[in-house]
């Protein structure tokens, strides 16, 4: 769990806030179906880099905030974000050693799973987005992974967050 007295916690929170802002930027509707889950990428980076500090609970709280911000059913994103955090923490030893493209593929797998869960829950709520577009953000998210990784790694090294 994130504690404010540890070094670099504010940097982590700031990057998560940036991810949140990127996710909720207003974009034209046609671009909306391509927008990746930036917050999920940032969360999974920190889960893999600092699994002792950022994990399931952080993901859950973030998901709840997203639920409240979007005005959707409370717990929907919380569930998916905690699963994403869990996957990242569990796989961090292997994924850290992978070359970039394999990391992106792993991310694709995680993101696809989360998107599937989300669209499944939306379906139960009566929002059928059944034309197959729900997985597109997962693909763009995986494509964005190298950028997110390099940016956050440099940031982490600059602030020496352990």
């Amino acid at each position: 769990m994130l504690w404010p007295n540890q070094q670099g916690t504010w940097v982590i929170i700031a990057t998560l806030a940036v991810g949140f802002i990127l996710d909720s930027l207003p974009v034209p509707p046609w671009l909306g179906s391509f927008k990746p889950d930036f917050l999920a990428l940032v969360l999974m980076y920190w889960c893999m880099a600092l699994p002792q500090r950022v994990g399931v609970i952080t993901g859950w709280v973030l998901g709840l905030l997203v639920d409240a911000a979007q005005g959707v059913l409370l717990g929907q994103h919380a569930l998916v974000y905690s699963i994403w955090a869990f996957c990242a923490v569990k796989a961090h030893r292997q994924v850290r050693l992978f070359p970039l493209w394999q990391q992106a593929l792993t991310m694709l797998l995680f993101l696809l799973m989360g998107r599937l869960l989300l669209s499944w829950m939306n379906g139960i709520m009566g929002y059928s987005s059944g034309d197959g577009w729900f997985f597109v953000p997962a693909v763009t998210g995986a494509l964005f992974w190298p950028i997110v990784l390099i940016a956050l790694r440099d940031l982490r090294r600059h602030y020496r967050i352990e």
Binding site: G55, V56, I57, W60, G63, L64, L73, L74, G75, Q76, A78, L79, S82, I83, F86, V89, K90, M121, M125
Partner: peptide
């Protein structure tokens, strides 16, 4: 512990969803 956390969190989320709905 991580797995247990996930299980608890998933159950709480599902409870939240049910109550919120």
């Amino acid at each position: 512990i991580i797995t247990l956390k996930l299980v608890v969190v998933i159950m709480v989320s599902m409870g939240f969803m049910w109550f919120d709905h």
